[in-house]
Write a protein that binds this DNA or RNA. Structure first.
Length: 522
DNA sequence: TTAGGGTTAG
């Protein structure tokens, strides 16, 4: 397949410059209107002509009417024009954008309604910024093939960005090589992006090739360039090499910064070497770097993964002492980690702290937290004091209109049932079903058992019948057994008989039989 | 000239 960045009609010879012919260059920076156009427009280059005031323009498109001009005054300055174009592109629905571009390019004023010419490089850049790399590439092809645009350094850099954004480093590399062959020098940012595009795919060979080329052609790598490589090495598990690179940087001209340290630390954390990551953190402090919250968060995650969330908790204190404020991610990471390792109480304390610090706790987090509290409380048995906390959070979710997930409902209902709060359990079952969830059988059995334990046998029975009618009860026999057993235990043999009869009537033969005591039998 | 590159969670 031909690559769109080099259309066959592209006047390549003209780009073989170190320095372009003067006349050409004149056009280059402003209008980029080359090739032969319609006779009518030859006097005025297609895209650079000035136009009449906007009021006299009759043929305004529907889009223009619908979307009033952004309040920007486009001047020739590239930055302003790019920003203006980005805003305009964003006002157009995605599927209308190709058509909108055609319009922009065919309108005599370049569609920007001012005296300024439309700089096609700006347009391409605007497309990239509006997250339209494909459109930028196809526009580039058609511009080139129509002879409207002869690419310069900036055009190529924009193309490189497009391909990187699309996750196509090889395509980007081809543009880069083409630039190098033609003596055009991309900036260090562009080359870094290219190298990073390889890193993100774990293709370190490609990344280092780009790095070598940049050094060869005299572009000095920046700290960002190194950081991308460091991160790439970690990504493919080559953490030792990443560490070596960091050490090399300490003695080299480009010193490591907090990003470098964080990247290597993350690498170590991801392979279960959080303690070494911690050592790096201290080393960074020793170098006078001021740590970011991300650095700490990385370590929190590492400790939590390793099953040592308590270590993370200690670091939370330390970071505050060092005047680094925790953020949402810090709290979320720790809460998740603590819950994962069964430290529900500690998680709850972190949650309170998070709330006190003014952070919003999202739906998912609340669900996870409530479930964690319920699980721990159920495990701890009767002595557990967590029911109250779980209940409080659960009602808070409802007050705040946060969606309760079905598993959360299930655990809360079980906990209510076990803790002799059957009425609450019933309310929640109703609510859960009202939201279209189907309680699990085990949940329903917990409810029945709970009602029995509280002596609400009639209620248990009618609950059972109701659930059956709702089609919720495939394992009915178990529930009837629970009821019969409970009636037996309480010496209510006639009620047990009653249940047994109902079960039979409904086509279930319970394993448990009503038990009459001696006195009752006689 | 103009834009643009690097760090954290589930």
């Amino acid at each position: 397949m031909p690559t769109p960045y080099l259309p066959s009609s592209l006047p390549l010879h003209q780009t073989h410059l170190p320095s372009p012919p003067p006349l050409y260059h004149q056009h280059f920076s402003s209008i980029r209107t080359h090739g032969v156009h319609h006779k009518k427009t030859q006097q005025k280059p297609l895209l650079s002509c000035s136009i009449q005031p906007r009021t006299t323009q009759i043929n305004r498109t529907a889009e223009e009417v619908q979307h009033p001009e952004p309040n920007v005054n486009p001047r020739r300055s590239g930055r302003v024009q790019v920003r203006y174009l980005v805003e305009r592109i964003r006002t157009v629905p995605k599927h209308d954008r190709p058509e909108f571009l055609d319009l922009l390019m065919t309108q005599r004023d370049g569609g920007i309604g001012t005296d300024d010419s439309l700089d096609l490089n700006n347009l391409l850049m605007a497309l990239v910024l509006a997250d339209e790399p494909d459109l930028a590439l196809s526009s580039f092809s058609s511009m080139s093939s129509k002879g409207l645009l002869v690419p310069d350094s900036w055009t190529y850099s924009t193309m490189i960005r497009c391909y990187c954004k699309k996750g196509q480093p090889d395509e980007a590399k081809r543009v880069f090589d083409h630039m190098v062959e033609n003596g055009l020098s991309p900036t260090v940012a562009t080359v870094t992006e290219l190298s990073n595009s390889y890193c993100r795919k774990g293709r370190m060979k490609g990344a280092f090739e780009v790095f070598d080329t940049m050094v060869r052609i005299g572009i000095s790598p920046s700290v960002q360039t190194y950081n991308c490589l460091v991160k790439g090495l970690c990504y493919v598990g080559r953490v030792e090499e990443a560490l070596e690179m960091l050490k090399g940087m300490r003695n080299g001209p480009v010193k490591p910064d907090v990003y470098t340290y964080t990247a290597v630390m993350d690498g170590f954390c991801k392979v279960g070497r959080s303690d070494e990551a911690r050592e790096l953190l201290e080393e960074a402090v020793g170098m006078g770097l001021s740590l970011s919250v991300v650095t700490y968060n990385t370590l929190f995650d590492g400790y939590c993964r390793e099953g040592r969330p308590g270590k993370g908790l200690g670091m939370l204190r330390q970071m505050k002492e060092r005047n680094c404020l925790p953020d949402c991610v810090s709290y979320r990471t720790l809460i998740h980690g603590l819950l994962k390792w069964g430290k529900a109480r500690a998680a709850l304390r972190v949650y309170w702290e998070m709330e006190d610090s003014g952070f919003e706790v999202d739906e998912r987090m609340m669900n996870v937290l409530v479930r964690g509290l319920c699980r721990t409380s159920l495990k701890e048995g009767n002595g557990s004091d967590l029911l109250e906390d779980a209940g409080q959070l659960f009602s808070k979710m409802q007050i705040q209109n946060l969606a309760v997930e079905d598993d959360t409902y299930g655990l809360v209902i079980s906990l209510f049932s076990v803790k002799k709060k059957s009425e609450e359990a019933l309310v929640s079952v109703r609510k859960m079903m009202g939201e279209g969830f189907h309680p699990r059988i085990i949940t329903l059995e917990d409810v029945v058992r709970g009602l029995c334990r509280e002596g609400k046998l009639e209620k248990a029975l009618s609950f059972l019948v109701l659930m059956e009618e709702e089609g919720m009860y495939p394992r009915r026999r178990v529930a009837y057994n629970i009821l019969i057993e409970e009636f037996n235990r309480q010496g209510m043999a006639f009620s047990a008989c009653n249940v047994y009869g109902i079960a039979l009537k409904r086509g279930v033969i319970p394993e448990k039989k009503p038990k009459f005591r001696e006195t009752e039998k006689s």
